[in-house]
């Protein structure tokens, strides 16, 4: 099972990324847990300075932007390999 974390302190863009991640997971039909991490200390642990960021299975895959749905899908399929 995949563990997808969306890092961000609760701004509109962060919620957008969270929604996109959930949509990608549903489309791919993979088993994954999507969670929004808004604790600053937790966010900094991944070395991220610009949010929203995406972490899949503890690996940072995107930061400082709202990726397109297709890009998130690619990130998830890459993590599955």
């Amino acid at each position: 099972m995949l563990n997808i974390k969306v890092l961000g302190s609760g701004c509109a863009n962060c919620h957008k990324v969270e929604a996109l991640a959930k949509q990608a997971v549903a489309q791919l039909g993979v088993e994954a847990k999507v969670e929004l991490v808004s604790d600053v200390k937790e966010i900094m642990r991944y070395g991220v300075m610009s949010t929203p960021a995406v972490v899949i299975n503890e690996k940072l895959v995107s930061s400082g932007r709202v990726p397109a749905l297709s890009q998130i899908t690619t990130m998830i399929t890459d993590a599955l390999v």
Binding site: S9, C11, N13, I43, V48, M49, S50
Partner: peptide, 15 residues
């Protein structure tokens, strides 16, 4: 630099 005020905190700490 691309900047959104919502990432002001992580950016501040990182700096």
């Amino acid at each position: 630099t691309p900047f959104c005020s919502c990432s002001a905190v992580p950016l501040f700490i990182g700096f």
